[in-house]
Design a protein around this nucleic acid. Structure first.
Lengths: 220, 220
DNA sequence: TAGATTGTTAATCGATTAACAATC
DNA sequence: TAGATTGTTAATCGATTAACAATC
């Protein structure tokens, strides 16, 4: 059960897919399976799957027979630490903010969405996915008072940096940034940026059969 | 100008950020700058920036003085190959599909959005970002007839696999998948999956100060 | 026991960082 | 020339793959 002092980020990022594969199998009545089956459903090789489990310290495998899925599920969940709740807010109640708030995957793993913020007075007061939309002007106080550690930025590129400035000053520790801007923040703040356009551009390189893309691994 | 036979994927993924940094500097009247400045604006070290340029075969740097931004911009754009147009469609006209369609970053780099598809008859016929929403039933024909190579899946997890099946049969070569499901496709089809919930979960691990996260690099 | 499948080791691959010689 | 900054090399780090000994 105890995992080694640090698990590679790449491994951690695959755990949710393993959990989904396990859940899918379980709901089909499969309670026990070899690495090859779970791996195939997760889009990775069985070698990588087993390697990941080993890095994570999982122990519900039995040589010659496979894994007890219920036990494995519990171990993976423990690594992701969903027991301890973590709260976050979304800034930007446009289509993207709306999509994120409603997304089932934002509700997984011990995450609590405390609020959604927008500058548009029309939107303020309405509810999205059961959470009320507040005005941006109350963002700083809200983050500070509720000890919100994660802020999701779903605004346009122009306001992203100023939102980051505000929430960092208010004590936010982590930012998930969907605006295509490189945020400048103090080193103690962790930023993950996802530029949806960049993902599309990488596929476009493939489509063009660009020389630059000579060989890129499939599926990521 | 000619780049070596294959540029690392990690390098290619940073080029758009470099382009944005260069554009920002240019619009501030800066026409020439050292690697350290562009790198800082792009959120990377100057060493990495120069290394990337070298991998890409850029040549607008001058020892002792820096880079000609206009020249550099042109070279980077050439690598991304935006000259040759590539067309794509979005499946799913919910909030996510809407957000993607409207996103300025989806309009960059020689990308043409040809259509948006949804099952909901209410949405069919309306326009999003100047593109008409069509019914899912016409998806296969549309992809085949227009030689669409990239399909963006912005549906819920339940329909994602069946959409993938349809478009692959119709000839799509690349899929950008936002549903949290591992798609099973033939090896010739390139899939990039982005699970927005996973990104949030990784930040949550940090927030919890989980042992598993002992040391993870900041900013990605 | 024989067959199957794990967990781990070693080899490979890819990406980042640091340092510095080349040179404007 | 002296100072600055590039482009590249070598060292490090991290992640993946392959292979197989351990063992149920």
């Amino acid at each position: 059960m105890p995992q080694s002092s640090h698990v590679p980020l790449a491994t951690l990022e695959r755990l949710p897919a393993y959990l989904r594969a396990i859940d899918a199998l379980t709901s089909h009545g499969v309670g026990h399976a070899p690495s090859s089956l779970v791996a195939q459903r997760s889009g990775v090789s069985s070698a990588q799957f087993r390697k990941d489990l080993s890095l994570v310290g999982a122990s519900s495998g039995v040589r010659g027979s496979g894994y007890d899925l219920a036990g494995l599920r519990g171990e993976l969940r423990d690594v992701l630490g969903s027991a301890e709740r973590v709260s976050f807010v979304i800034v930007g109640a446009g289509h993207l903010g709306h999509a994120l708030a409603a997304s089932s995957s934002f509700r997984r793993g011990g995450l609590d969405m405390l609020g959604i913020f927008d500058i548009d007075d029309e939107k303020v007061g309405t509810q999205i996915a059961g959470v009320v939309v507040r005005h941006d002007s109350s963002l700083a106080d809200f983050v500070a008072e509720n000890g919100v550690s994660i802020v999701v930025i779903a605004t346009g590129p122009d306001s992203a940096q100023s939102v980051a400035d505000v929430v960092v000053r208010a004590g936010a520790q982590e930012i998930l940034n969907f605006a295509s801007v490189v945020l400048q923040v103090p080193p103690c703040v962790e930023v993950r940026s996802i530029d949806l356009g960049v993902e599309l551009q990488m596929l476009a390189l493939h489509a063009r059969g660009s020389q630059a893309m000579a060989q890129v691994p499939s599926v990521r």
